[in-house]
Design a protein around this nucleic acid. Structure first.
Lengths: 320, 320
DNA sequence: TCTTGCTCTGAAATGGGTTTCATACGGTAC
DNA sequence: GTACCGTATGAAACCCATTTCAGAGCAAGA
């Protein structure tokens, strides 16, 4: 492999001058620039980026912590991140964690060891305390509704979004209402649960713990959810499912058993995936790609810790 | 940032010894090892991985070239790659190309500049010639049915898989058969087209160019495809759609117009996504995760160029 | 006793850039 | 004429770890 030194020799200049040409610095005379360029061409030179990384102390690599790659919700966020990251000359490294602590630590260690310039956390299992420890090694952006002042975050107001969904279901006349979340212990779920409790109390409706489910991520989970619902003696009349895929799974499975939506049970989804459009599922539309874009923006300005909230929208269709 | 030199000083040894401790080399006396370990702990040292990359000439990073991240087909492959890559201590960098040449070149350049140890190409637009030029910089693995001897590949026998699908449709008594591909110009599509032509000829069935579509990737494309189909005077009775998502979109849209499957039109999908299971779509199951795993295996053994073929399976359900 | 061989250690070379600093030169303002 | 500034350039320091090489010490076998 040819290196900068050989180029310098070949071109009859110093390595500094070669470096200047390579980085488009001013103060290089046209003829020297030309001869360097020629040397590069002749010797078929290409820079060793690891040396640059070492020297500059940065890699233009952003780590993304997500539980699953293969999922519309995170897929959309990752897509947004990728687009914006590319726009600022960065690439992304995916850490698919399946909510294993160890995997998250791996990513954080790469930040510490300077292989990553920053990390965007889409969803996590590690305690906030852990993230804060690693903050000194580079910007960590959270895609969650955090109250943590020390880390920038971008999120949807999940309390408000869930409230909006619930109020709509209630306004439609349903009284026995359940919901299904991803993981109960996440920040998002905490806020959604709180919204549910508050609003049900306000309307003096029954808050039945049996109608509260979790583990809704994929289509198949909707099948499972339907089985659970179907086997209950006392069934909720409406379920808010925080994920269109699962909602779709529920509805499609229900149909096979002759249960129709919204006649037998109303379903309200989240995300506004194209699948929900196809199946006419009433849903809350979330600006997922935009979350990704904003996360990168926050990464770019690490000196200002900000907490950005994005808007949501109720998409009225036919499942409620 | 503390570095290895400071650790050496603090521990009263040479940098070589520190490096030996760090890398678990033998031939370090227990007491020196101990004092190095203590120094590391005291000074809160962490290695600069970029220096290691520079020194070792590798980064344990594998690039993945895919057109879309947000898609079940590629999602499954990426998932398989990620799993196996992690197993061998590598991480992955995603290049979402949307079939833009420039993006693919970006990835290849990162291979050249040694930021990547290798590249797995899931689908591409660049000519083979271009890939071959970059081969000297590191292993390039193709997830396609290539005849190219110089690059390792992992693929499904798309000719056979498509043949299997078509023979099944024919055996079911359909005569007017169409199909829909992703991009017509891809290697996979070439083989599928060839299979179609050969078999239709064998069975002396009409090969109507108007019944051959492309651009089928997402659910929404299925909606579009249905509109096209529906507006035809002379409609095919069966369509093989090389993508379950699009097949699902077709079927769901059809249902809204009162067209039922397979009575009015038979649909055969590809991939065996969970969505196809939900909708009882007859499909060809492809071992996508396994492709990912095998791709990493091939990456690991770059000295032997291999062309691995994986099996497929016809999943009979109710849409044909 | 001498040779061989293993354990242990550090100096120095290596990987390959970026950046600072010192210097030199030509031109302009006063 | 002198002071000052912008352009141009190279030497050397710096980023940080790995690895080779050479040598020292010590024990076992001949």
């Amino acid at each position: 492999m040819t290196n900068i030194k050989e180029i310098a020799q070949f071109a009859g200049v110093s390595v500094s001058t070669v470096s200047r040409v390579l980085n488009n610095h001013p103060y290089v005379s046209p003829d020297k620039r030309e001869s360097v360029l020629q040397a590069i061409d002749r010797l078929n030179y290409s820079r060793n980026i690891n040396a640059i990384h070492l020297s500059k102390g940065k890699t233009n690599l952003i780590g993304i912590i997500i539980p699953f790659t293969n999922h519309p919700y995170y897929g959309a966020i990752v897509h947004g991140i990728t687009k914006q990251a590319n726009a600022i000359g960065c690439h992304i490294v995916i850490f698919e964690t399946h909510y294993e602590r160890e995997k998250e630590i791996q990513a954080l260690n790469m930040l510490q060891m300077k292989q990553l310039d920053g990390i965007i956390v889409c969803s996590r299992i590690s305690e906030m305390k852990v993230l804060l420890e690693y903050q000194k090694y580079g910007p960590i952006i959270l895609c969650e509704d955090t109250a943590q002042a020390e880390l920038s975050s971008i999120s949807i107001d999940h309390y408000a979004a869930f409230s909006c969904a619930l109020e709509y279901v209630i306004a439609k006349g349903y009284k026995k209402i359940g919901y299904s979340l991803g993981r109960k212990k996440s920040r998002n779920s905490f806020l959604r649960t709180k919204a549910f409790n508050d609003i049900m109390r306000n309307h003096q409706l029954i808050n039945n713990k049996e109608w509260q489910f979790e583990g809704s991520y994929h289509i198949k989970d909707g099948e499972q959810l339907f089985q659970e619902w179907n086997s209950m003696m006392d069934k909720p009349e409406a379920i808010i499912i925080t994920n269109d895929d699962t909602a779709a799974g529920f509805i499609l499975t229900a149909k096979k058993s002759g249960i129709t939506v919204p006649n037998d049970v109303a379903i309200l989804g989240f995300n506004n995936d194209s699948l929900s459009e196809m199946l006419d599922i009433t849903t809350i539309s979330l600006p997922l790609e935009w979350i990704g874009k904003m996360a990168v923006d926050l990464f770019e300005n690490p000196e200002v810790i900000k907490h950005v909230k994005l808007d949501y929208a109720l998409i009225k269709r036919k499942s409620v």
